[in-house]
Design a binder for these strands. Structure first.
Length: 615
RNA sequence: GUCCCGGUAGCUCAGUUGGAUAGAGCAGCGGCCUUCUAAGCCGCAGGUCGAUGGUUCGAAUCCAUCCCGGGACGCCA
């Protein structure tokens, strides 16, 4: 099934097809019927908005056209005859039997989500950690957003490559290695804190860039950039000489330096994997493909651009100029060294060609927007935006906003350091565990019988859900204020709210005396308004996922699930399930509950959020 | 200076790509538990959608010009 085809269990798919033929019959046009869920339940379940825009094109009367469509459309067994309203809206109320049939069709392991026959891979650049640096809140976003994007594509059957493009090569790493050696640190006992402080020391000691400063003046760079370079100039030292010789030894494969290099990578990644595991993000050693992987592909990148006549020398550096803008892309420094743009070009070519990716998604800080635009445009110039079999790849920079503190400035600790991810996760988990434990004191709580270990497991899941949901359910491109108190309040629009709805259903289903086969053979309950609203929303799940594969807007998942949980809670309030004496009604409601539970569970899994059975 | 991204309720944010009366959650006020889990539900109050003009049956959404905030702008990544 192609990815752009409509889910067969979604009523909007059927309505779209029927109205499309009606439009063709009436006007000989192939136009979008503009089927939308009704804005108000009083209007019906769906509305077709095509009459207005179609009338504009044909210079006809919108209400007359709407009437003609209502007359021409065949909705037998699907919906009642459409009702014309306002300037030309067509309001549609579905037959209950049709809703029940669609629910039955999606109520299986697939949940109505089809598997694509697209065989090209999806490549997701995520996490993006640097060796010798602790993960901070920026890495939180790159990791969990990337993981969610990957999960969504996996859900529709795509082959997905998670690429952790870690910064494990080049002068910064060599400077750190040199600093560690000068400090006589035993690398076998190395802690990440030691490593991190060595990295910062090395950065301070080694910053100097005369060529850069000269070029900055010559090209009229911004004052900010020049001030930055001047500050670096102040602290030039012998450290840079030491670092450069270390870099040469590393590049030359010197056994001693390479061994030290591997040790600092191991040290860094130990904590990275601990954090990704805590976050329930699938980022492990198998996803590592850092800068060092591309080290032998950098010179060929530059050669390739030169041979293609796309690059030229400028002030000793090699640049790729663009026709539509002043700013060129620098791919080799005047001292012969390569830059991150060079590595990114090598990596992009690897992703489209070697990994055969027709969709390449970079989950990286939005501030790198211009950089990626340049890299993508340069790749397009030379034709590296094509898969192995020549298909044009869709390459996207999914730039996320900055995490801010309550003061609206980038999040820092009291002392001005970046917030480490670990501290943040530890605090969220602690809050989750204490909250779950507190509630378990109540003898009537479903969690009362759980052991401390089990409570800790649930509390952990709750705390992590709070953080992940708060991040993933916002517009990714915007900055957001990180307020842990608000996130772990567990009331209102939160991850735990969704988990709670799920746990209620799971607990109810566990208590049900009806056999699984009795429930499975019942028709889903749709008679009551609360049931019907819940049912209609369940049917939109597959289309929601397809929308996310197109837009990469992970907040749509959160919005969908929140509405689902709200509709379920409203249903739960007004429609007794286990208390229903009538066997048919009870089983019908249990079946609706079961499907809701499955969709909630599946949806939460796209966020990598656990759904405990009790909480 | 050039370019990019934002501005929606007191606060934090949605708004299904131009549709009907702009929605949630916090915070505030008022109801609902001898419990199918109150981490919930129902109600009240809260808005010149940054500003002005334009496009049209119809604009928070599209176009233009301003205002405010943030970011990027050649040898760091």
């Amino acid at each position: 099934m192609p990815l752009d085809s409509r889910p067969p269990t979604d009523p909007a798919s059927t309505l779209d097809a029927r109205f499309r033929s009606a439009i063709h019959a009436v006007s000989q046009r192939d136009a979008d019927p503009q089927i939308r869920p009704s804005t108000n339940p009083a209007f019906g379940d769906y509305q077709a908005n095509a009459a207005m825009s179609l009338a504009k094109e044909t210079k006809g009367n919108p209400r007359e056209l709407a009437a003609a469509l209502a007359n021409a459309v065949d909705l037998a067994g699907i919906a009642e005859p459409p009702v014309i309203a306002g300037p030309g809206f067509l309001n549609i109320r579905l037959e209950s039997s049709f809703i029940v049939a669609m629910l039955a069709a999606m109520d299986n392991a697939s949940l109505g989500v089809g598997v694509t026959n697209e065989t090209h891979a999806v490549v997701v650049d995520l996490c993006g950690v640097n060796v010798a640096k602790q993960m901070h809140v920026g890495h939180l976003r790159a990791t969990i957003i990337g993981d969610t994007i990957a999960r969504v594509f996996e859900r529709v059957g795509r082959t997905v490559w998670r690429e952790n493009h870690l910064g494990d090569w080049g002068l910064p790493i060599a400077m750190t290695l040199a600093a560690l050696r000068r400090a006589n640190v035993d690398l076998d006992q190395l802690t990440l804190n030691q490593l991190n402080s060595a990295y910062r020391t090395a950065q301070l000691e080694g910053r100097s860039d005369e060529a850069g400063l000269a070029a900055a003046y010559a090209t009229g760079a911004g004052p900010h950039r020049i001030a930055e370079l001047l500050a670096q100039q102040m602290s030039a030292g012998a450290a840079i000489v030491d670092a450069k010789s270390t870099l040469l030894r590393l590049q030359g494969g010197d056994a001693e330096v390479v061994a030290a290099w591997e040790k600092i990578i191991t040290c860094t990644m130990r904590e990275v994997y601990a954090s990704t595991a805590t976050l329930n993000a699938k980022v492990t050693a198998e996803h590592n493909r850092g800068e060092s992987f591309f080290r032998d592909r950098l010179a060929p990148v530059v050669d390739g651009f030169i041979k293609a006549g796309l690059a030229k020398e400028d002030q000793g550096a090699i640049i790729v100029p663009f026709a539509d803008r002043e700013r060129p892309l620098l791919i080799r420094k005047s001292d012969g060294g390569f830059l991150y743009a060079t590595t990114d070009l090598a990596a992009l070519r690897f992703r489209t060609f070697d990994l055969n990716g027709s969709r390449v998604i970079y989950v990286v800080d939005a501030r790198q927007r211009d950089h990626f635009k340049d890299v993508f445009d340069a790749a397009a110039l030379i034709g590296w935006d094509r898969t192995k079999d020549g298909e044009k790849a869709e390459i996207t920079h999914l730039g996320f906003g900055t995490v801010l503190g309550k003061d609206k400035r980038p999040l820092k600790t009291r002392s001005g350091e970046n917030f480490t991810l670990k501290d943040l996760l530890d605090e969220a988990i602690e809050r989750g565990i204490s909250e779950v434990t507190r509630r378990a004191q109540d003898p009537n709580a479903p969690t009362h019988s759980l052991s401390a270990t089990e409570l800790a497991r649930v509390g952990r899941a709750v705390g992590i859900a709070a953080i992940k949901y708060a991040d993933l359910s916002n517009d990714l491109t915007k900055d957001y204020v990180f307020d842990l108190d608000r996130m772990v309040a567990f009331e209102g629009d939160t991850g735990p709210y969704l988990q709670y709805a799920h746990a209620r259903i799971a607990n109810m289903l566990a208590k049900a005396k009806d056999s699984a086969s009795d429930i499975a053979s019942a028709n889903h309950a749709v008679a009551e308004p609360a049931e019907r609203a819940l049912a209609l929303h369940l049917l939109r799940y597959p289309q929601m996922i397809l929308d996310v594969t197109r837009t990469l807007e992970t907040n749509r998942i959160g919005a969908y699930l929140r509405t689902l949980a709200e509709l379920f809670n409203a249903f739960y309030q007004s429609c007794p399930v286990l208390k229903s004496e009538d066997d048919t009604l009870r089983r019908a409601r249990l079946r609706l509950c079961g499907l809701t539970r499955d969709v909630l569970h599946d949806g939460l899994s796209l966020y990598g959020i656990e759904a405990p059975e009790r909480m």
